[in-house]
């Protein structure tokens, strides 16, 4: 990690769901920091990784409840903000990209109108300025024919194109932190890498922080600087991405071992035995 103060610092975050059978803890007291870097959160379904991303933005919906000793962003304490004050951060300074552009874009609005709406919410621009700004934004996410994309409806775009549009929209207010929840999981492998290169460039050129939530350990280990491994609501290991092959926690090692590899031979894959002791984070 860099010596500069972290952008985001989360302490003792807990997310509880009240169910008929009593409260269930989806996230059980996790703490982490994100600087101007790429931090990955990896875990399987139900590990609490997506909830963690939503909690930072105050987007955990009832019956879920999130509480934290502290969520500091820059010099603001997000846990003390009212819903109204929180809206100044959401989207403007912390943005979020979700998994599937099909569900995050409005199907009956052209892309141009949706981007214009985002621009209008975050600043006062004339319609000529909006037009010019929209084109520039789409060029920044490597779309070659922005005019045509602006005139299109979401169903006329491929998945990769839709995700580029989503990322472009999120970047309108120049956020300092981007939370990306499985941003490339719905995309083809070759398209996936294009989208990652765009995100990578944003971290490098704009000094943005990126919290990258994914189930794909191989992708995270090659893309991120640091990886937080979540298992059943806890961060069980925090490790520099390049050190993942030497991971110490049995869960992390198990996750790596169960992936098929090209040239790995046809021998049965390792499976996870899920010991109760795995819930204990590494010291």
């Amino acid at each position: 990690m860099s010596a500069s103060p972290p952008l985001l610092s989360v302490e003792d975050l807990r997310i509880t769901f009240d169910t008929r059978r009593g409260p269930v803890e989806a996230v059980r007291g996790i703490s982490f920091k994100v600087g101007r870097e790429r931090v990955g959160i990896v875990g399987e379904s139900g590990s609490g990784k997506s909830m963690t991303g939503r909690a930072v933005l105050g987007l955990v919906r009832p019956p879920g409840r999130s509480q934290a000793r502290s969520i500091r962003f820059g010099d603001a304490e997000l846990t003390r903000l009212s819903e109204r004050e929180m809206r100044k951060f959401r989207g403007a300074r912390i943005a979020m990209v979700m998994q599937d552009p099909k569900y995050s874009l409005n199907p009956v609005m052209t892309v141009g109108r949706q981007i214009a709406e985002a621009l209008r919410v975050h600043g006062r621009l004339s319609s000529t300025e909006i037009r010019a700004c929209s084109v520039r934004m789409l060029e920044e996410v490597a779309i070659r024919d922005p005019e045509r994309v602006l005139a299109s409806h979401p169903h006329e775009l491929s998945g990769g194109m839709g995700q580029r549009v989503m990322i472009a929209m999120m970047l309108v207010p120049e956020p300092e932190l981007l939370i990306a929840d499985e941003p490339t999981s719905a995309l083809d492998v070759t398209v996936q890498l294009d989208v990652l290169r765009i995100l990578d460039g944003l971290v490098r050129n704009r000094g943005m922080g990126l919290l990258f939530i994914s189930h794909d350990l191989r992708l995270v280990s090659t893309f991120c600087d640091r990886v937080l491994v979540m298992y059943r609501g806890r961060i069980v290991e925090e490790i520099a991405a390049q050190d993942l092959p030497q991971a110490r926690h049995p869960y992390t090692r198990g996750l790596l071992a169960c992936l098929p590899r090209i040239g790995g031979g046809g021998a049965p894959l390792a499976t996870l035995s899920r010991e109760p002791s795995w819930e204990t984070p590494l010291p």
């Binding site: 490597a142 070659r144 299109s152 775009l157 491929s158 194109m161 890498l193 290169r197």
Partner: peptide, 9 residues
């Protein structure tokens, strides 16, 4: 870096 992509679909 990715080349600008044509709008295919």
């Amino acid at each position: 870096a990715p080349e600008a992509v044509p709008v295919s679909r």
